[in-house]
Write a protein that binds this DNA or RNA. Structure first.
Length: 111
DNA sequence: AAGATGACGAGGG
DNA sequence: TCCCTCGCCATCT
């Protein structure tokens, strides 16, 4: 099991994203105490691909682009899921991002 | 053990 | 505004 504390934190926060909202890799990285590890957040989510308990489709990059869509089972799965939650996606990008953006809570160090 | 990778993000030209 | 480069850091090879 490669999951260490870092992965668990990423998964925990990702599960907290409300239905119909999205957040970014960087926001999650910052919330878990490693603001420079946005790339690793993506890496962790990649390792969670196929896990229906983790709404990874609600995590996009800072511009609202669906950079992770290629890692889902279907080539349009990510966009379909987001649109199904009431968010419009145009040209691989979430529209009106700031309206749907969800700011994750900062995790205590001993969580 | 050492170098390469990447679902990012910020800055420079 | 678009494009490229660089820094980042847990993992992977």
């Amino acid at each position: 099991m490669p999951q260490n504390d870092f992965y668990e934190r990423v998964y925990y926060l990702t599960r907290q994203i409300p239905y119909g909202r999205v957040t970014s890799y960087g926001a999650i990285a910052k919330a878990i105490g490693s603001p420079k590890s946005a790339r690793v957040v993506g890496y962790a989510l990649n390792a969670s691909a196929g896990n229906i308990d983790i709404p990874a489709h609600r995590v996009v990059n800072r511009n609202g682009m669906l950079t992770g869509k290629a890692h889902f089972l279907g080539s349009q799965a990510m966009q379909a899921q987001i649109e199904a939650e009431g968010i419009s996606v145009k040209n691989n990008q979430v529209q009106n991002l700031q309206k749907y953006f969800w700011q994750p809570p900062v995790l205590s160090l001993d969580n």
